[in-house]
């Protein structure tokens, strides 16, 4: 199942290739850092899912997280907006500084964190409300009531869904296809104008055309936002990401398996001249 999308996009890639139009990245020291993550270890119960992850996420870039299934990509990205707080027995240590402020600190309100760091989940999860209300509800609750219709339309347009739903905004969101639901979730997340958008495999349920639209969206969004995206699709990472982090599963002394960050660098570097053998094996498809 995880293999299939890759194969598909390999064969049809020439037709869906997004013009990357990637500006040459300024030297990294000059970039503003959104997240500074240091020694992040996260565990469900006693067993760590990721261990000692340290990386910086830069402003106005797309950062891709790649790696084999179960290596803790979702766990990692969910730490960035305190989404794992809701899971009983979940524990995390280390620091995640967001614009310099440690968001794992005790006195930080996770609600405020999530307000500025939005998220799109691996599986589409629209509200059982109308298409319009899926986008408008968050806006209303968060007090962004001015020009509600305009905001909804802009978000749906950016998520490449407007043309398909503009005539049935009052229909239930559950009547949409899986890919449409995912785009609706993207619209919902960007409508409330977060500072960072975290996307956990947003395109895994999308066809090439919608995928292209979402990738275009990421190019547009990164002008004003910073984006972290988890993807299984290497071509996608190569197309959209400025920076790429490769996670892998390691085995500890006592045979326990945990995810760790193997390599983090500019995307070109990761895909053309990786420093670590495991990265090379993975990006060239020799993994496993």
């Amino acid at each position: 199942m995880t293999k299939e999308p890759e194969d598909v996009s390999t064969t049809i890639e020439p037709t869906v290739r997004v013009e990357t139009r990637r500006q040459p990245m300024p030297p990294r020291e000059r970039l503003e850092r959104v997240f500074q993550i240091e020694n992040l270890t996260a565990s469900y119960g006693p067993k760590p899912a990721i261990r000692n992850v340290s990386l910086d996420v830069y402003k106005n870039l797309v950062t891709a997280i790649i790696g084999p299934s179960g290596c803790g990509k979702s766990t990692f990205i969910r730490c960035l907006n305190r989404m794992n707080d809701l899971i009983p027995h979940f524990r995390q240590t280390g620091t995640i500084r967001y614009h310099g402020q440690d968001i794992l600190a005790r006195d930080v309100d996770p609600v405020a964190v999530r307000r500025t760091i939005g998220m799109v989940f691996q599986r589409p999860n629209p509200f059982p409300k109308s298409i319009y209300d899926n986008v408008a509800w968050g806006l209303k609750v968060l007090g962004m009531r001015d020009d509600l219709d305009g905001r909804v339309e802009r978000a749906l347009t950016q998520a490449a869904l407007w043309d398909e739903v503009k005539d049935r905004l009052k229909a239930s969101a559950l009547s949409l296809s899986g890919g449409q639901q995912q785009r609706l979730c993207i619209a919902r997340a960007i409508a409330v104008e977060p500072d960072v958008v975290l996307m956990d495999e947003p395109a895994s349920a999308l066809d090439p055309i919608a995928t292209q639209a979402i990738e275009q969206l990421m190019h547009d969004l990164k002008r004003s936002y910073s984006i972290v995206i988890v993807t299984h699709n290497m071509q996608q990472a190569a197309r959209v990401a400025d920076m790429t982090a490769f996670f892998s599963i390691s085995t500890g002394e006592e045979g326990e398996r945990f995810g760790e960050l193997v390599e983090y660098d500019a995307t070109e570097k990761i895909f053309t001249a990786p420093a670590d053998r495991r990265t090379e094996d993975y990006v060239t498809g020799r993994f496993g």
């Binding site: 989404m83 609600v111 999530r114 999860n125 509200f127 509800w137 968050g138 968060l142």
Partner: peptide, 23 residues
């Protein structure tokens, strides 16, 4: 009620009590 529904609301920065009440 699937927890993905709660997460959808919480990820928008909606407080928990509001999520419970409205979603």
């Amino acid at each position: 009620v699937p927890s993905s529904l709660r997460e959808a609301s919480l990820a928008l920065g909606v407080p928990r009590w509001r999520t419970t009440l409205s979603i």
